[in-house]
Structures are given as structure tokens and as C-alpha cells.
């Protein structure tokens, strides 16, 4: 596991098997996914632990992450399979905990599970 942005939180997982292009896919005022082709279409990422493979596309997606945090509609934390700079720097500036996990860990996480995330802990992800 790789820790990109430190923090501690707990909440319910919302998982996507597909990457997210934050710009143009996530509504920055509501935190709702607006891309009809995306598997999380119409779902809100607010106060969830957002699990997804990685961010893709526009570099401005970092501002979208900063905006959803400023508008109080951001996820509590993000957990990705692959690191990308849009998500890494967006979370760094917005202070949203972000960790990168391996294949096996990624498949073990499912929508609806309640977990705690503590980047200081020996086992950062714990099922509740």
C-alpha cells in the first residue's frame, strides 16, 4: 500500500470498476456523477469512501476535486489501484486522504462495506 495523502476517517464504500475523469464527469456543486456512460451515473460521491482504479483525462480534474471539497460534497477518502497526478494533487490540496492499493486489496473492497482508514496505522484499512 502506498500512502499519497495522509488522514484518518471511516465510512461506507462507493466503488467503481472504471476510471473517473473528474472534469466533466463529477458535478462540482453536488458531487453527483453526470456521465451517462459511467457505472456510477447519478450517484453521489459525497461523504463516501470512493474506491476506483484511477483518475483519467483532463488535468483540470484536480480543481474539480478541490471544488467538491470546498463545496462540502467531497468523498471522505479515496482509494485507488493506480496513482495518477490529477487525483494525487487534487487530494493533496484538498486534504482528502488517498491511498493506492494492490490488485488483491482492490478486489476485496465492495460498495456498501463500512471501513475505517487510518494512514498512520499498521493496517490502514479495517472492515467495521
Amino acid at each position: 500500500m502506498k500512502i499519497l495523502v495522509q488522514g484518518k476517517t471511516q465510512g461506507i464504500i462507493l466503488k467503481s470498476q472504471h476510471p473517473i475523469n473528474f472534469l466533466g464527469t463529477v458535478d462540482k456543486k453536488t458531487g453527483i456523477i453526470s456521465d451517462k456512460n459511467h457505472e456510477l451515473f447519478d450517484k453521489s460521491i459525497k461523504d463516501k469512501i470512493l474506491v476506483f482504479p484511477n483518475g483519467v483525462g483532463s488535468s483540470v480534474g484536480a480543481y474539480t476535486i478541490y471544488s467538491i471539497k470546498s463545496n462540502n460534497v467531497a468523498p471522505l477518502a479515496m482509494i485507488c489501484h493506480k496513482a495518477d497526478l490529477t487525483v494525487a494533487t487534487g487530494c493533496a490540496l484538498a486534504n482528502i486522504p488517498l491511498v493506492i492499493i494492490n490488485d488483491k486489496e482492490f478486489s476485496s473492497l465492495q460498495t456498501g462495506q463500512k471501513i475505517s482508514l487510518d494512514t498512520e496505522s499498521f493496517n490502514p484499512i479495517a472492515f467495521l
Binding site: K28, S58, S59, V60, Y66, S67, S70
Partner: peptide, 16 residues
């Protein structure tokens, strides 16, 4: 730099 269009960065970006 990217993050210039008000349409993309919005009020949070403008204030930042």
C-alpha cells in the same frame, strides 16, 4: 498551466 476557464474551475478555483 491548466485551470483557467471559469467554467471548469468555478468559484472555488477563482477564490483559490
Amino acid at each position: 498551466l491548466s485551470g483557467v476557464n471559469y467554467n471548469t474551475i468555478g468559484d472555488a478555483g477563482e477564490e483559490f
